[in-house]
Design a protein around this nucleic acid. Structure first.
Lengths: 353, 353
DNA sequence: ACAGTTTAGGCAAACGTTTGCCATGTTCAA
DNA sequence: TTGAACATGGCAAACGTTTGCCTAAACTGT
């Protein structure tokens, strides 16, 4: 017997209690290779007796392959990194939760990184995750950054969510944002809105731009003579930004009777501004959001919003990632959205319908 | 020169583009050990010329130590696992976001695992993370589970957040829940509430129990003759549960004029129930929550709530984790809370104060 | 001049895994 | 009887890192 083998059971010090291949091998009196092969289901390389013995030992001792050793060897790490701009945003939390569940079901572990929408942090995480052998990246609301460009050039598997690849191409999970904007426009017209408006952040992401354009185009198409006011707002987040934009809009021509908020958070910002000025929502000013956070059903009965099925994003992301790693060319996946109408006034007298 | 050395620049195949110690060593014409030592700041072991040459190469080629190799060696992995019950809960998202930022600042990477409050998933993640050499665990709202018990017995570094260690002891980050409940009681009394009530989930966690007890004790202490109604509600989440409990309460004696909702989500559930029944919040029924989600400032001006400083949890967690790993005994950290009063009625006419 | 010390740096083992290749021993067909 | 084919399983390299120990050469003090 090889005298360098450890005694069974007493494992290697700092590795607190984990059973290794060597432990099993020593106890079974076979080599590490044999155990490795059996553990990986290659049963043809050992006698039935050996296979049975080793399998029993694996089960008894609760051996589980160490993913670190595996990754180092160059195999798979079962690690996927998700880069999200901001966990505080309920929409991001919903995407993260659904993706985590889908990845787990597929046998992966998700590492979540909060990039705060900063390209330097995005770069730092891309580097850190690459050297941890992440098998894939899920980038939510990507921003352009040198490391992202480098990753794309190397052909690393990256799935873009919510915002398209700033360098073009690549798999994308999202919705038809132009159509969502158009649906919002239809909704406002149906509600009899005469003087609609739209607010948006000062620096437009592609996502927001598409929503706004879809909205404006549809209005122009259906009501060529209708004037649509447009206003942007400063602020690091959509809440502040919606608030600021609404105040500017009000100061600069009064409140519109209907308004597109291209994200629910902006609608929340507008809601606060309206409260500050005694404007009733939705009676005086009817907002329509895009996102439809789950919380709306509970505490924002005044907000109609285009529901984005964030809870279904996870499966789509994992499917794209799998295709990508299999070498198939993967395109865009646009999931269905639909407008959710809510009609309760601020009076809080719930609409029983 | 050692003929097994790789040529500089052409790295090892599947390891897509990562620079390794061997690459730097080959290019510098020194051994891997020397580069490793210099990279780790051990400058006394090489001549000034060598140090300079290697350092320049490290900077030029952008070498970054591979954490996988490092962990395998038994060193530190810089990986910390956070197990959270439910990312959809804004409070959890806030904890996750702040912890992530604090860990990042301390040079760690956080792996986020969503346990859905299930002990089997909690166990699965504990196992998976242990074998990935996670250096520590942050368990938010822990539930009892075999693997958790095993981890505690092995003395692994675990910090409990929001809910105490079900097996007792251990570092804990949270607030003084009894005091928070008492503060909520004081608030309702100050507002002139005559017939208060409290709702809570059917199965009480320690956290919720303490809040409810603190509330009831304080009411008993200040108004020994006041009857306080109490009602629980079913539901997998606090939204449903608050909704169900409020409806039961209303059916079983009418709406109270003040009510403790031991989490903001329960208050949201109550709000919806009130809307369905035409009850005005807070005029007819004044709720007080605990959590004070950030969104309250924007869309729940009717909810006074005890603010839990989730945004400061991250630093406390990281400090505890560090102490724990340093071998110091670490106790509870109770952060300050304070009640945030909001007075706007459902009329939405904002309170300018 | 010689022993002792310092300086500079290489060797090799170890962490846990996977896998190509080699080495036995057995069976089978011509 | 002699190959060939097959069954069984071990050896060793490789992944990237860290570190205890070793070896030279150069330098120091006497």
């Amino acid at each position: 017997m090889n005298d360098r083998r450890r005694e069974p059971g007493q494992s290697s010090g700092q590795n607190s209690g984990q059973i290794s291949l060597a432990d099993i091998a020593a106890e079974a009196g076979v080599s590490v290779s044999t155990v490795s092969r059996i553990a990986n289901g290659d049963l043809g390389r050992a006698s039935a007796a050996t296979v049975a013995k080793v399998q029993k030992l694996i089960a008894d001792r609760g051996y589980r392959p160490n993913p670190i050793g595996r990754s180092l060897r160059g195999g798979d790490s079962r690690l996927v990194a998700m880069l999200a701009p901001n966990l505080d945003n309920p929409a991001m939390a919903a995407i993260a939760a659904s993706t985590e569940a889908a990845l787990r079901a597929a046998g992966y572990v998700m590492i979540l990184c909060d990039t705060h929408d900063r390209s330097d942090l995005q770069d730092e995480y891309l580097r850190a995750m690459r050297s941890r052998f992440a098998e894939g990246f899920i980038v939510v609301s990507a921003v352009a950054s040198p490391e992202l460009e480098a990753s794309l050039e190397r052909g690393e598997p990256i799935v873009f969510v919510n915002r398209r690849n700033p360098y073009g191409g690549g798999p994308f999970i999202g919705i038809d944002n132009r159509q969502a904007g158009a649906d919002a426009a239809d909704h406002l017209l149906t509600c009899g809105v005469r003087a609609p408006a739209v607010i948006h952040p000062a620096d437009l992401s592609s996502t927001i731009r598409e929503r706004v354009e879809g909205f404006l185009d549809r209005l122009r198409e259906r009501r060529p003579d209708m004037a649509v006011r447009r206003c942007d707002g400063a602020g690091t987040n959509h809440l502040d930004c919606g608030h600021a934009a609404a105040l500017r809009l009000a100061a600069d021509g009064g409140w519109p009777d209907g308004i597109l908020c291209p994200s629910d958070l902006m609608a929340y910002g507008l809601f606060r501004a309206a409260g500050e000025q005694g404007v009733r929502i939705p009676e005086d000013c009817r907002p329509v959001g895009i996102d439809d956070n789950d919380l709306n059903d509970w505490i924002a009965p005044w907000l109609s919003s285009v529901k984005i099925p964030y809870h279904r994003f996870g499966d789509a992301v994992v499917a794209s990632l799998r295709d990508l790693r299999a070498g198939n060319s993967v395109g865009e996946v646009l999931l269905d959205h639909r407008l959710v109408r809510r009609r309760s006034g601020s009076s809080m007298a719930g609409d029983p319908a």
